[in-house]
Simulated assay, not measured.
Amino acid sequence: MHTPHRGALFEPERPQSRRLKARVVDICRRESLRPQHDLGQHFLVDERVLADIVEAASLEPRLPILEIGPGIGVLTEALARFGVDLTAVELDTACARYLARNFHSKPHVHIIQGDALGWWERSRATYTEGEFDIAANLPFNIASHVLNIFLSSTPRPRAMTVLLQKEVAQRTAASPGSTSMLSLMAQSYADVHIVRTVKRSAFWPMPKVDAALVTFRDIHWRHAGIDEKVFFKVARAGFSARRKKLRNNLAGFAGLLPSAVEALLLSIGISENARAQELSLEEWRVLMSKLTN
């Protein structure tokens, strides 16, 4: 896909980034906009990170984009340059009002004021599985919930390119030994890749933690033949006491003797001393197949 000329918003030099921050601060002052801590608002002010989001998104001209929590529209403006159909959903009334004025001359940009997940519940029927993308600087306080909704329920996007709190990003991409319910959920639906870490100084106001740019691609349920609800019900039991061995957690859930679960684990090549966080995605799939068939 052709990449548009990188104007002021895309220049990687730090002086340009300082200008973007000055511009963001000026807009907030002029429009009497105050970043809302309770909404997790931290506006992106780093040119290089902005360019990396657009590049990582690998946008398809034919696919609409959904942006959650656009704030004052720094990423919105960068995405709008591609001319694709873009819907940005902003909870903050004052920010949404500013966005509506700022993008009124761009008919391919649709500004929605309201709760993004509530709007999605009402609007999801107008979208098609795998036929839209998500790109967003997700508010930290709702990021995990947003991931769960868009990965585990239909219609699912083709891909998601999002900024997350660094710790959350690392949990989604965790490998055996440090996995969790979040990583198991994310990797059961998508190829998860951390593109880069992002310093907290890339945002204004500056949050207390760093962030990371993460892509979720090839989104679909990866455990064919296994019911999703049953899969995660059993997995939650497995992770219910992280310090306990998996055999004990599952025995209590399934009403089996620990020895019976131990025999099952050994039959599929999993140590009888394994803990839930040590299993690979494939081992979870095989285990679930045995438990549910």
Rank of each mutant, 00 (worst) to 15 (best):
Y127I: 05
E129K: 01
G130M: 03
D133N: 03
D133P: 03
D133S: 00
I134P: 00
A136V: 11
N137A: 06
N137V: 09
L138A: 03
L138R: 04
P139N: 05
N141A: 07
I142F: 02
I142D: 06
A143L: 08
A143Y: 04
H145G: 05
V146A: 00
V146Q: 06
V146P: 06
N148A: 04
I149Y: 03
F150L: 08
L151S: 02
S152R: 08
S153M: 06
S153A: 07
R156V: 01
A159R: 14
A159P: 09
T161N: 04
T161W: 02
V162P: 02
V162M: 02
L164N: 03
L164A: 05
Q165P: 11
Q165D: 10
K166P: 13
K166G: 03
E167D: 14
V168I: 12
V168Y: 01
A169M: 03
A169H: 08
Q170E: 15
R171Q: 15
R171G: 06
A173N: 13
A174Q: 05
S175Q: 14
G177F: 11
S180M: 12
M181C: 12
L182S: 08
S183Y: 10
S183R: 00
L184C: 11
L184W: 10
A186F: 09
A186Y: 09
Q187W: 10
S188Y: 08
V192L: 04
H193I: 02
H193W: 07
V195W: 04
T197R: 00
T197Q: 00
V198W: 01
R200H: 08
R200N: 14
S201W: 05
W204E: 09
P205A: 02
M206D: 09
M206P: 07
P207Y: 06
D210S: 05
V214D: 07
V214P: 09
F216V: 11
R217C: 02
D218V: 02
I219L: 07
H220G: 12
W221S: 03
R222P: 15
H223V: 11
G225W: 09
G225P: 12
G225I: 13
I226D: 10
D227G: 01
E228M: 09
K229C: 06
F231H: 13
F232N: 09
K233T: 13
K233I: 04
V234I: 15
V234C: 08
V234E: 09
A235W: 11
A235I: 10
A237C: 12
S240A: 15
A241Y: 11
R242T: 10
R243I: 12
R243A: 12
K245T: 13
K245M: 15
K245H: 13
R247Q: 14
N248C: 08
N248A: 11
L257C: 06
S259W: 01
S259C: 00
E262L: 08
E262N: 07
A263Q: 14
L264Y: 06
L266W: 10
S267T: 12
S267Y: 14
S267Q: 14
I268K: 08
G269E: 14
